[in-house]
Amino acid sequence: MLIDYYPSNSFIHSLDVRTKLLGFLIITVAAFVFLSPFINLLIAAITFLILLTIKTPLHKIKQVLKPLLPIFLIMLLITGFTYPAEKFQLDLNKQILFYLFPDKTLPISVGGIFYGLTLTLRILIMVLASTVVTFSTPIEDIIQLMQKMKMPYQLAFVIATGIRFVPTMQKKSEMIQEAQKARGTEFGNKGLIGNIKSYIPVLIPMIVDSIRMSENLAISMLNRGFGTYKSATNLHEIKMMKKDYAICLAELIILIAAIWANTENVGVL
């Protein structure tokens, strides 16, 4: 999640965190305003293009999307089969393609498939848009935004450090799993209870290690003068520039246009 920041000097990277968050919001709203999968496909394509401009390596994007594939497939099937055909506004969408079982049970309609596609695309759009934000925004910017919203420095620091340690803990957990496998532990083929039980040998060393690490961290923080004063110098003040205001304005226009289009029945099913 938030640890995916990937440094680069792209245009999106240079924008203020607030501009990016507004953009995320608008893309999401747009995706929910339109029901048609074609419009959503267009939005998804645009978001994907933006993602490409921030120069993230493709394998990182793949890492984000791959685990979502089965969810997309299940969503597509469930909505495709269960959405009642009568509810669609357009005649085309009311057409029933075939029935899964005889005696007209579980019909699948054109609209059903479209609707399933839209739902899937909406999630895809949200994931892509949030990836744009997380890949292009250092955690410090987000923390600073929180501080601007009057969160105390100490709490903001704790959150930032927690996030900084996610990859470290992941690595630790992998090392522990390897050590336990090497002495005969089997993971993942003993049913739910069995699996939970087999993770105890991973969990306990993890907890013990975390306690040790947190003590060391506390010491290190003191060593670096944490808590000398109530707050610390912000090295990189987040600041709205001219281009941020321009982009924000454009974003708002898009938002209004989308809502207006919706009232004009564009992109219904």
Partner: peptide, 14 residues
């Protein structure tokens, strides 16, 4: 300044 054994728990910045 004190530097400790485990470098992992002394690094705060990204």
């Amino acid at each position: 300044g004190l530097v400790m054994q485990d470098p992992e728990t002394q690094i705060f910045g990204i």
